[in-house]
């Protein structure tokens, strides 16, 4: 009955994991930078220095990863395409939205059968990508202050007089928590789909394949 379908191409999987690792690393180091919870006894150590270095390193990794994924939205297969992120634009997509919503609110026992992202998740990802962009922009604007007149300061420094350094910092901090909240939701949803659909959702992000029952797609 079920057939094996190649859903997530390797760039999708790779950027997913780069994003995931980056978010974890950036959150831990970022939290430390905002509130250094470890104090050390001697200046021979370099805890904050390393935290910041790692934070900046992963900031670049994260930015490139997000950028790659955005480019892939125009190059990749139908499941990776930018179109899936706007389900409300088609009538079929709108049905999926309603169906998924009813499933999440326990009205229906099963979500509509889809191969790629479910409609609600796809919409949420648009918001999440928006948050990514906010983090990247605010982060590099703050980072650029170490070198006024440098590349980052020249391209993003105009944000400082508008929102203020502290405004950017607060935004950067609050969005971190929103992304942590999203991560919890994301892992749970993936697990839920795995349980409900028994389609290998969790495994698919490693291998790229899902078990799909073509009948359910109707």
């Amino acid at each position: 009955m079920h057939e094996l379908r190649y859903v997530w191409e390797w760039p999708v999987r790779l950027t997913h994991w780069f994003n995931a690792i980056s978010i974890v690393v950036l959150s831990v180091t970022g939290y430390y930078i905002g509130d250094p919870f470890v104090s050390v006894p001697a200046t021979s150590q370099y805890v904050m220095g390393w935290m910041r270095f790692i934070h900046f390193l992963f900031a670049y990794i994260f930015m490139l990863s997000v950028l790659s994924r955005l480019i892939w939205a125009f190059l990749g297969n139908e499941f990776a395409s930018w179109r899936v992120f706007f389900p409300w634009a088609t009538s079929k997509g709108r049905q999926y939205i309603v169906g998924t919503f009813l499933f999440y609110t326990f009205v229906k026992a099963k979500p509509p059968g889809v191969v790629g992202h479910n409609a609600l998740a796809a919409m949420a990802y648009v918001g999440v990508i928006g948050l990514y962009v906010v983090q990247i922009v605010t982060g590099f604007a703050l980072y650029g202050q170490y070198a006024p007149g440098g590349g980052w300061d020249s391209s993003l420094g105009w944000l400082l007089p508008i929102f203020g350094n502290q405004g950017l910092r607060l935004t950067h901090h609050v969005v971190m928590w929103l992304l942590i909240g999203f991560s919890i939701h994301h892992v749970y949803s993936a697990w839920l789909m795995e349980v409900k659909e028994k389609n290998g959702t969790l495994a698919s992000i490693f291998g790229g394949y899902k078990f799909i029952d073509p009948k359910e797609l109707q």
């Binding site: 939290y31 901090h173 609050v174 971190m176 928590w177 929103l178 909240g181």
Partner: peptide, 16 residues
Amino acid sequence: ADQIGLGLAAATAVAF
């Protein structure tokens, strides 16, 4: 911000 964020994350976890 941290207390709010932590609360938000915890609420998310509890809800899900």
